[in-house]
Amino acid sequence: MNHNPSAFASIEQNGLVARQLSHNYGNYQALSETDLHLQPGEVVVLSGPNGAGKTTLLLCLSGLLYPTNGRVWIDGHDLYGDEVEAKSRLAFVPDVPRFYTELTAWEHLRFIALAHHAGEGFEARAEALMKEFGLWQARDLLPHHYSRGMRLKLGLVMAFIRPFKVLLLDEPTSALDTEGLELIQTKIRQHRQRGAAILLSSHDRALSSQLADRVLNMQAGKISTNGSQAAGRQAAGEQPDSAGEQENG
């Protein structure tokens, strides 16, 4: 099954490429063999019912779940063979982020930035992001004192604080307030403009119509629909920038 808009994508291409990706939990096949290509500056929304395999696909693409078969390339780097280069270009936000018990929100950001060699100009970037997401006042709190929505926002900020060329989001709007929803849409648009390939799972049809270049529908571990340009995005007249030229973060 091929979900590449340009027929057969070369692994050297920028963005995200997955070939023959599948995953089984024991005898249960959660993800059937899947090919996928996201071009730089493209936003793809994964939709489908609960248990369709969206999270499994995102986990395999993020390197957090080793696929039973298949390979993934991030910006031309093999996720499992050249993991340092691949992971330095990749950001994934799970639907329920978990944090270190002993580190405050601010320290989480600092740690992520340092681990990604992105300490330059950290203070200004972190302050701006935390203010945008409404976490600035609570920056010195331990995250287990945060509400569910605040934890999701912190997970998103931890992704945006570092450079990436591929962004994976699992249900990023599930616990957000109205302002948070608008903000995440703005952020996705900004990063698309900068050439990031963005794949997100969502049940929110409005979000899909407003943001998605393509909508992929998943059913029982298979991508059943190779979607087309979303009407909302066309109406807005947005075009992706020159692919992958500019690093996000």
């Binding site: 340092v84 944090f99 992520i112 990604h116």
Partner: peptide, 8 residues
């Protein structure tokens, strides 16, 4: 894991 597994 979601933090640790993503470290480059």
């Amino acid at each position: 894991w979601a933090v640790f597994g993503q470290l480059p």
